[in-house]
Simulated assay, not measured.
Amino acid sequence: EFFLPMAVVILVMSMLRVGALQNIALLLWLVVIVLIVLDSVGIAIRMRKQLAQRFPDQSTKGAVRYALMRTLQMRRLRLPKPQVKRGERP
């Protein structure tokens, strides 16, 4: 969610028909992708440490992968459900 404003600015820059701006936008897209990957790795490392601390006598193999996938889905899960009865249109 923190990378979204950057992505919008880069998208606008890439739509302009100026060659130099498009080259800069390509470089910025690559930087944003690297930042997102590094952020995910940091989250995974912190989660692994917290899980090992909370559950020292249990195996947490595969839990970090599952937690990362759930973290990515949380934005979708937080959206309010439409209050429409079955068969009705909103």
Rank of each mutant, 00 (worst) to 15 (best):
K81I: 03
R48T: 01
G19I: 00
Y66K: 14
I24T: 02
V34F: 09
I43Q: 11
K61Q: 13
A25K: 06
R78I: 00
D39F: 04
M15Q: 06
A67Y: 10
P80T: 00
L26N: 11
K81G: 07
M13L: 09
Y66L: 13
Q73F: 06
S14Q: 05
A52T: 00
P90N: 02
R86E: 07
V34T: 07
R17P: 15
R17A: 14
T60A: 13
A44H: 13
V64P: 12
V37L: 15
A63Y: 11
I36K: 13
V84K: 02
L11E: 08
M6N: 08
Q73H: 02
P5Q: 01
R48Y: 09
A67H: 10
L21S: 03
G62V: 06
Q83S: 12
V12W: 03
Q73T: 03
S59E: 14
A63V: 06
V32F: 04
L68V: 09
N23M: 04
R78Y: 06
Q73I: 02
A67T: 05
V9F: 10
K81Q: 09
G62S: 12
A63L: 15
G42K: 03
F3K: 01
L51Y: 15
S14G: 08
L68E: 11
I10N: 07
G87A: 05
G19P: 03
V64S: 13
G19M: 05
I24L: 14
Q58G: 00
